[in-house]
């Protein structure tokens, strides 16, 4: 493990890799009262390839957390399909869907809210095992201890309660719970956003080690593009319920094909004063529009520095299409970015 301290950027999952999860035009609308509708996720299609880390970034209100819940089917889709392997998850209900949760686990944002305060750490980690009646008695407890040491905690902590642990330790507990059933896909929803910088690094490294060890596939969601780029093979950028770009993470930075991605990249401060002072901010005008009344045409046209108005940007919605090999973007003028 130590030898891997410096390695080359992981190669993008070749297009030939097996697709583990696929979303087809997935839509989630929420009623917002008075007949209004929040277009939280508004027709997204993408795939997650076996063994890769797909990063998902976007600012607040872009729909990334809702998308995480559609992928894990904690929320039903309004329309569209989600396939896990060859199985259409969106068709399954009740017990059949529940059985798929074994393979689809989730790590949550808030390490303080995501653990039941009345349960011991051992019971929390064993909950997935108990829910599927996988192991009982001594075998179950041995598995709990094994999981604790896998995530770097003392195996004898199983009788303690969550409030006795720090944020980083609690997140390790949440990771152990997600791993209990040997899932194939783990959705990390802002799993490190609530942690201190030095602890974030611990958890990112842990997630990378676990992926290698257990051949996991991640959907890694965060608002911090630098962390997402670091951990992901491919990066997917969302804006107002739509995917605007999907590309290899090196390419995302080197040659973004959507003006929003470019603006997002330019806005992230680099912890190096000499570099940071030379960088130019792509300033976005205005505010993120409301997902209740998303703009016509390209949803980004109200803030876009290169938009041509009104035609075509305010009238025609640009499709998410391949601009280069394995590099998708939804922009009429991606060559101008």
């Amino acid at each position: 493990m130590a030898a891997a301290a410096v390695s080359s950027m992981p190669a993008a999952g070749a297009s030939g890799a097996k697709v583990l999860l696929r979303a087809e035009n997935a839509v989630k609308h929420f009623p917002a009262g008075l007949g209004a509708t929040v277009h939280a996720v508004d027709g997204v299609s993408f795939e997650i390839r076996e063994g890769e880390t797909l990063g998902l970034v976007g600012e607040s209100g872009c729909g990334k957390s809702t998308l995480a819940r559609l992928v894990t089917q904690l929320l039903p889709v309004t329309s569209g399909k989600i396939f896990f392997g060859d199985v259409e998850l969106t068709k399954l209900r009740g017990e059949k869907l529940r059985q798929y949760r074994r393979q689809l686990q989730m790590i949550f944002q808030d390490p303080f809210a995501s653990l039941d305060p009345r349960m011991t750490v051992g019971d929390i980690i064993a909950e997935p095992l108990d829910n599927f009646g996988v192991m009982r008695g001594r075998k179950r407890n041995a598995r709990v201890q094994e999981l604790l040491s896998i995530v770097g905690l003392n195996p004898n902590f199983n009788n303690r309660y969550p409030h006795e642990f720090s944020g980083g330790q609690r997140q390790r507990i949440g990771i152990a719970r997600a791993l209990a059933l040997n899932p194939r896909l783990v959705v990390c929803d802002e799993a490190i956003s609530a942690l201190d910088v030095s602890i974030q690094a611990q958890i990112v490294n842990l997630l990378e080690d676990l992926q290698r060890e257990f051949k996991l596939t991640y959907l890694f969601i965060a608002h911090d593009l630098s962390v997402v780029r670091h951990i992901s093979d491919r990066v997917m950028v969302m804006y107002l319920g739509k995917i605007v770009e999907i590309a290899d993470s090196v390419e995302t930075y080197a040659s973004p094909k959507h003006p929003y991605t470019k603006a997002l990249l330019s806005a992230i401060p680099v912890p190096d004063p000499r570099v940071q002072r030379g960088r130019r901010l792509v300033e976005l005008t205005g505010e993120i529009p409301s997902p209740i009344h998303p703009p016509s045409g390209c949803r980004f046209h109200t803030r876009c520095p290169i938009a041509r108005l009104p035609t075509p940007c305010a009238e025609t919605e640009p499709p998410l299409e391949e601009k280069r090999r394995d590099h998708l973007a939804a922009c009429h003028f991606s060559s101008d970015v």
């Binding site: 690094a201 611990q202 630098s226």
Partner: peptide, 25 residues
């Protein structure tokens, strides 16, 4: 020194393992 090496940089061109600070605050 450790803190600066524990942050991923958006302009990184190579994937380098983050240098976390072990232990807790």
């Amino acid at each position: 020194w450790s803190l600066l090496r524990s942050i991923p940089r958006v302009d990184a061109l190579r994937h380098e393992r983050l240098r976390s600070i072990e232990g807790i605050a």
